[in-house]
Simulated scan of single mutants.
Amino acid sequence: MSATAGSPPERRAAVVEAVIAAYAAGLREADSALVRNDRIWNSARDQARDILTECLAALHGEQVQVAMEAELTSMALGMRRAFEQIPPIDSLFAAHVLFEVGTDALVEEARAFPAGTGMSRLTRAVRMLHSSISTRVRAAAIGYEASTLRGVGAANTARRDQLARDIHDHIGSSLALALRCLDLYEADLAAGGSAQSRIADARQALRDTFRFTRSLVSGLRSYELRDSLQAEINSYTQAATDGAQVVVGINGDEAWLPADRREEIFLVVRECLRNAFTHAAASRIDVDVTIAPDCVACTVEDDGRGFDPAAPATGRSGGMSSMRERVTGLGGTLRVASYPGIGTRVHFQVPLPEVAAVDLVEREHT
């Protein structure tokens, strides 16, 4: 697993994939539950890939810390493993295997550094490896224990996935928005501008987090948008954007949208916008929502840096999966088209309950 030829990103990606292969081999040799099922392995692999990417960045002198969103994702993963009845010992053993193969790879990579710098870089990277793994293991243990104590192990697959999506889309996104507002607050201050609105937006995002967390803990999962779909999208956009022009168009009657559908559609649109703000560096983002009595169609398109959908999953993969699962759960479809240097286009469509069409007919005859 020595350094390979090519640009640094290509070399790091090659090292990561080599370690992932060794990690999978170690789990298969031990007949771990994490590699018996493709879906379970995919989540373990994606998490390992994020960990290794962080460690290699630390090895190359970059300032890295485990993101709060990674902890929330790990907590949701712990809940899923409780539902899937995967014993905690399997996760602990997987952490042990990952630490061993990851350390071996870091040692091999450090040999390519000039004398006098390799050891200090290696020490930093190994500490990052330990921190990345232990932070996620602790978060997953919290999720696992919470699920076990509340008896959610008996819940069905749909409920399990819904809970994981809710943690990501409500708690994770709101906390991410609060952190982004604080980052923008510092940037505005440095530029000599007024930044008080950023603090207000951060406070509101944290209030939303607390509100949803209370409902989740109490078992109610009660969440409703405070305003119309357009107003909620505009509010999020104003809080999260750092200068990109966002054009929002809502066509049709929001009265045709049941409250639960309206919430789900907003969450998908918000995740699209969050990805664009975080990853795309776009100058313009267009949001188009068309509401008909029998369905809703939405397109979110940006002119940012884009990405290769066929490339290995990155930090945005959790959000993409959540969006797709949420739309599929509504009986709809979601398509993503993206090209490096051109931009990204997300289009989804979901059906509406027949009551909307019946209501339209009644209104036409009154």
Rank of each mutant, 00 (worst) to 15 (best):
R12N: 08
E17I: 03
A22Q: 14
A24G: 12
R28G: 15
E29V: 02
D31I: 07
S32Y: 02
I40A: 01
S43T: 08
S43I: 12
A44Y: 02
D46F: 07
A48E: 00
R49P: 01
I51H: 03
I51V: 15
E62K: 15
Q65H: 14
L72H: 03
M75T: 11
R81M: 10
R81P: 05
R81L: 10
S91T: 10
S91Q: 12
L92Y: 04
V97T: 11
L98H: 01
L98S: 00
F99M: 13
E100Q: 12
D104W: 05
F113T: 02
G118D: 03
R121Y: 02
A125C: 08
S131W: 01
S132V: 02
V137K: 04
A139K: 04
A141S: 13
A146M: 12
S147H: 06
G153S: 05
A155T: 09
A158G: 15
D166L: 09
I167M: 14
L175P: 00
L175D: 03
A176Q: 06
A176P: 00
L182M: 14
D188S: 14
G193I: 09
G193E: 13
S194D: 15
Q196F: 13
I199L: 14
A200R: 13
R211I: 02
F212H: 13
F212V: 08
S215Q: 15
V217K: 08
S218W: 08
R221W: 12
E224K: 09
E224A: 15
L225Y: 04
L225M: 10
A231M: 05
E232P: 03
T237I: 03
Q238T: 13
T241V: 10
V246R: 06
V248E: 02
N251Q: 09
N251P: 02
R262G: 00
L267K: 13
C272I: 08
R274L: 12
T278V: 10
A281Y: 03
A281I: 07
D286W: 03
D288H: 07
R305H: 05
A310W: 00
G318S: 10
S321Q: 03
V327Q: 03
L330K: 00
T333G: 02
R335C: 03
V336F: 06
Y339T: 14
P340G: 07
G341C: 00
I342D: 00
P351T: 05
P353Y: 07
V355E: 14
V355T: 15
V358L: 15
V361R: 15
R363M: 09
E364D: 08
